[in-house]
Nucleic acid binder design. Structure first.
Length: 499
RNA sequence: GGUCGGGUGGCCGAGCGGUUAGGCAGAGGUCUGCAAAACCUUGUACGGCGGUUCGAAUCCGCUCCCGACCUCCA
């Protein structure tokens, strides 16, 4: 019997049972990247987190519509959402390209990186520029309901009126409207806004601005927060099950999204809001703007002052899975090295599990019970707000027993057949379907040949050992080690693995 | 300054009122021609000071540090 999935809801600050609006189906919207530069690792962690969540929902049998947008317009630079330059637009001007060329370039790069991390693609990946009409429509509705006002062709959302009438502005991010109003920072075009906390939903374009669309108010472009409100509504309905994103989007992005949805339809967009936590580099937030960053490429090649060597994508994914998605994760070289070894141990354990044969003639009841309990715990932990680090711990506990059986420390006779089967299927499901890990075979194409050659080499070494020709045997072993192939002598023969 | 979140053994990282988390590193052992791998044993951790409790890393108060958000960021 499966336990019930509980999810931490940012709005209530509590874990809640997931009760989908439509039985058996889950609608999930996750804020995607703004495609104005290369993805950085922090983005990757967030999307790995939501990939885990998506995969687990699928495993639980839900039909999931996973929508993750591409923001290719409206995201402004500098302070405030007024007067500053659009990120895509700016990059286009600097590189003398069409804005859509910029968006295309970085969207492709983003997709490649998601693929490298073995993230499943979302069900729908809508672009902001492809939904200008929907956004204009939403602005109209917000104005019709009295929460938007136009000044010089730009339209702003009246946060104070909204807060007064609905009393929910600030609820998601835990902010008080009074505090927002006392914000004294000097903002551009501040004079157009009625209140400092108001934000633009439609922005009149300067003559030099490259991205521009006609609207009832001006030739301009939509505000940053608007596309998510419009697109989530379009593809998931006015109210849907889960809305997610990085924790740094809580305010103002998500807070304003909620306001816009209420402003347009007087209803809450999502029942559950989920936020992933930040990836830190040596104790500090990774951030493009202050240079404290390692790119995914640097991580893979090791070409960074922060790293002693490169790490494979799956090592990094495993590293991320080892911490809970709501905790900050500190990326350090030492931690990465530990993850690399841990990941290897886990995968080796899985391989060993596949070679096991259950004899079951002399059953160890306690051990079998414990293994069955471990299997149950894995899913109970995942049901508890996607606790992958705990699930991983259970897996490792099983690995110890698996290895002990494999090398004969525990007799195979003690393992029951059905326990072995469910252990094997659990490992396969959890490792590959839920955690999204995969084997990393450097040259998978000629793997068969390599295996045959290794068989020959090990046979020769075996012969040398029979003849007590130790120097020959050790030369073979040591040379292989230099080539990155580890030779492992066991009770019943020799095996090898690529490091 | 305001608002949140956090400080766990050498490192990373779970737990959040009583039970061994787990991984990596370290120590001892088994196995082995030697090694590696694997297995077994091993760590008296919970920022500090008070309090509540039969019992606190876990709850409360104070305090010190750190981080995030408040401005573009996943």
């Amino acid at each position: 019997m499966q336990s019930q999935l509980k999810i931490f809801n940012t709005i209530t600050g509590k874990k809640e049972e997931l009760v989908p609006l439509v039985k058996g189906r889950v609608g999930m919207y996750v804020c995607g990247p703004t495609v104005y530069s290369d993805v950085h690792l922090g983005n990757c962690r967030t999307f790995v987190s939501f990939d885990l969540i998506y995969r687990y929902l699928l495993f639980k049998g839900y039909k999931v519509r996973y929508v993750r947008n591409i923001t290719d317009v409206g995201h402004l630079e500098g302070d405030s959402d007024t007067g500053a330059e659009d990120k895509i637009s700016k990059k286009a001007r600097l590189e003398q390209l069409e804005p859509m060329e910029i968006a295309q370039k970085y969207t492709l790069g983003f997709h490649q990186m998601m693929d490298i991390f073995n993230n499943l693609p979302p069900s729908i990946e809508p672009r902001a520029t492809g939904h200008i009409l929907e956004q204009i429509e939403m602005v109209s509705e917000i104005m019709k309901n009295g929460y938007g006002y136009e000044v010089n062709g730009s339209v702003y959302f009246d946060t104070v009126k909204f807060a007064r009438e609905k009393g929910i502005y600030g609820q998601l991010s835990g902010r008080k409207i009074e505090d927002l109003l006392t914000e004294t920072r000097d903002l551009k075009k501040q004079d157009e806004k009625r209140n400092p906390s108001d934000f633009a939903i439609w922005i009149k374009a300067d003559p030099s601005h490259l991205m521009r669309w006609n609207s009832p108010w001006s030739i301009g472009f939509p505000g940053w927060h608007l596309e998510c409100s419009a697109m989530s509504t379009k593809y998931l309905g006015r109210t849907f099950d889960i809305h997610g994103g990085g924790g740094d989007l809580k305010f103002p992005h998500h807070e304003n999204e909620v306001a816009q949805n209420y402003g347009a339809c007087n209803c809450a967009p999502a029942k559950i809001w989920m936020h992933g936590n930040m990836l830190l580099l040596n104790g500090k937030k990774m951030s493009k703007s202050d240079g404290n960053t390692v790119t995914p490429e640097q991580l893979f090649t090791g070409d960074s002052p922060h790293l002693s060597k490169g790490y494979t994508p799956m090592t990094v994914r495993f590293f991320m899975l080892q911490s809970h998605y709501r905790s900050t994760l500190d990326l350090t070289d030492e931690a990465l090295q530990a993850a690399e070894k841990g990941f290897k141990r886990l995968m080796e354990g899985y391989k060993n599990l596949l070679t096991l044969e259950a004899k079951g003639s002399d059953e160890d009841v306690e051990m079998n019970n414990r293994l069955e309990a471990i299997i149950r715990e894995i899913f109970e932990n995942m049901d508890d707000d996607f606790n992958s680090p705990r699930a991983l711990a259970s897996l490792f506990e099983a690995v110890t027993t698996i290895n002990a059986i494999k090398n004969g420390h525990i007799a195979a006779e003690m393992l029951r057949d059905d326990v072995l089967n469910s252990l094997q299927s659990t490992f396969r499901t959890v490792l590959f379907d839920i955690f999204g890990l995969k084997e990393e075979q450097s040259d998978s194409s000629d793997y068969g040949l390599t295996a045959d050659l290794m068989g020959l080499i090990l046979k020769l070494r075996h012969q040398a050992r029979e003849e007590k020709n130790w120097s020959m045997a050790d030369t073979i072993r040591d040379t292989l080690k230099e080539l990155g192939v580890e030779v492992k002598d066991g009770k019943d023969g020799t095996s090898w693995s690529v490091n």
